[in-house]
Design a protein around this nucleic acid. Structure first.
Length: 464
RNA sequence: GUCCCCAUCGUCUAGCUCGGUCCAGGACACCGGCCUUUCACGCCGGCGACAGGGGUUCAAAUCCCCUUGGGGACGCCA
């Protein structure tokens, strides 16, 4: 018809969207966006036992959070059996599919035997030429080529050759009338015009089966792109214990969706030495050719640091809105200032919120060590005289504050840190954080005096 | 067992298509230092890899073969 690129993401709603799944979703989405094509969402829910509505909703929510919008769907395989039946009938008519009445036990026995003889475990095709009619308990099998080689044209891995002898006459329709995964996927991709089919590495061995179906139907075989798996730190397939939790967990942990996408894409794909990408840049620069061929290990630390980088590069207003919605602190110039000053000190949105909330509440505690080291008897007078000077200030400007600093410093014959450090602890409860001017600005004059007095009381109380 | 895929610092990777510019570059982590009232940020420097063995070649991380290692798949699951 036309050359529009159509990609798809086909999760089975049997669990949440985790890192690996999200990555193939992102690759498909990016490629469609990069090529100005279409991105389709399709739920492969033919496994009625394990599919749940909750999983479906969670996947939808995760995709929305990541900003992976789709142009068509979501489609549901369970609602498309009539389409599959139509194509199965074509195959039967062409004599390229046949009914088989072997029991599962019989087939299992064949496989055991073949295995024992050192051959590939497979169905031996005993019903292939029997011309059996459809009967209770019969399955529909495809007539697979007996010889020759299947060439998978893979845009990522290059051509892959698999001898047809490796495959058997696999089942395309179960005895209960439902269709198997390989058949449903193929018909879906075919009828939805999907190409390239971008999916995980673990599907390469399914691909020859699907090619057999396309060819039996006399249809054009799409292009494939198999992306390598994501591994855990032990080089084993990623699982919960490696931190392969739901992608939504990262939202809870305070990650930015763009950072998650950046990390996930860069794991297995590269663009020279560049590490940091905005979503826009990714769409501009993404290409299938630059996806690597080897599996990659998921590194939570690197993802964290990419997130920190995205935080730093984020617009203050944008960060402000997120912090406000997650913390109930209303958006204000003060919040914006706080975000601006603290965003380079936080690796996640949660850390950011934690570090600035002291400016929006009167309830905060001194960190034990910070108080012990800085709120000492010797700091009392210094703090006291600074509070007095502050009280006398007319304009709460940096110049006036500096003047107050200098006076206190001169009066007590001390260096700046002797005042600044206890002051920061008095104002924020911790020994580290923003510069003292920013800290004062965020606290406000009256609150600053109040907190200094509170700190002095604390020193007095602590003494006894 | 059989088939398929893969192999550069601890990890993600550049380089491999067109062998020499690579005694291998960047990033995370780690270790020093600078900046600085603190902590971050930033900047500078350090540590650290072509799995092994054979070829081909004047020359190999780059091409070929073998070995080893890792991953995946062999269902009326997806």
């Amino acid at each position: 018809m036309d050359n529009t690129i159509i990609t798809r993401f086909p999760p089975s709603p049997t669990g949440s969207l985790h890192v690996g799944g999200a990555r193939t979703a992102v690759f498909n989405w990016l490629y469609a966006r990069a090529k100005k094509g279409k991105f389709i969402l399709r739920f492969e829910d033919t496994d009625q036992e394990r599919s749940t509505k909750e999983s479906e909703e969670e996947i939808l929510e995760a995709m929305e959070w990541l900003g992976l919008d789709y142009d068509e769907g979501p489609f549901y395989q369970t609602k498309r059996s009539d389409v599959y039946q139509k194509y199965a009938d074509i195959l039967i008519e062409k004599g390229l599919a046949y009914y088989c009445t072997c029991t599962q036990e019989e087939v299992e026995a064949m496989r055991e035997k073949a295995k024992a003889e050192g051959r590939k475990p497979k169905y031996d095709g005993r019903c292939r030429e029997k011309g059996l009619k459809k009967t209770e308990g019969a399955v529909l099998r495809i007539k697979a080529p007996l010889s020759g080689t299947c060439i998978i044209k893979d845009v990522i891995k290059g051509n892959i050759a698999v001898p047809y002898e490796e495959l058997d006459d696999f089942v395309i329709q179960r005895s209960d009338g439902t269709f198997t995964y390989n058949f449903a996927v193929t018909i879906d991709d075919l009828t939805m015009g999907v190409s390239p089919v971008i999916r995980g590495d673990d599907h390469v061995s399914n691909t020859p089966k699907q090619i057999i179906i396309y060819e039996a139907l006399g249809e054009k075989v799409p292009e494939f792109g198999h992306v390598p798996m994501v591994l855990g730190s032990d080089k084993k397939r990623l699982s919960k214990r490696h931190g392969a939790m739901s992608i939504l967990e990262y939202k809870k942990l305070g990650y930015l969706p763009d950072a998650v996408i950046n990390y996930i894409v860069r794991l297995g794909w590269s663009y020279g030495d560049q590490e940091f990408f905005t979503r826009k840049e990714l769409i501009e620069k993404f290409s299938l050719e630059n996806i690597g061929r080897s599996p990659g290990v998921f590194d939570p630390e690197k993802m964290l640091s990419i997130n920190a980088e995205h935080m730093q590069n984020s617009d203050d207003d944008f960060l402000c809105r997120i912090i406000s919605s997650q913390s109930k602190i209303p958006v204000s110039d003060k919040l914006k200032l706080a975000v601006n000053v603290y965003k380079s000190r936080a690796k996640t949105l949660i850390e950011l919120e934690d570090s600035i909330k002291v400016y929006f509440t009167d309830e905060f505690e001194y960190s034990e060590k910070a108080a012990k080291d800085n709120l000492k008897e010797s700091s009392k007078e210094i703090l006291k005289s600074f509070a007095d000077k502050l009280g006398a200030i007319k304009d709460f400007t940096h110049d006036e504050i500096d003047a107050a600093f200098n006076q206190v410093l001169a009066d007590h014959e001390i260096k700046f840190p002797k005042l600044a450090k206890p002051l920061r602890v008095a104002l924020t409860g911790t020994a580290q954080g923003a510069g003292i001017h920013e800290t004062l600005d965020l606290t406000g004059k009256d609150k600053a005096i109040e907190r200094i007095e509170k700190a002095i009381m604390w020193i007095n109380g602590n003494k006894c």
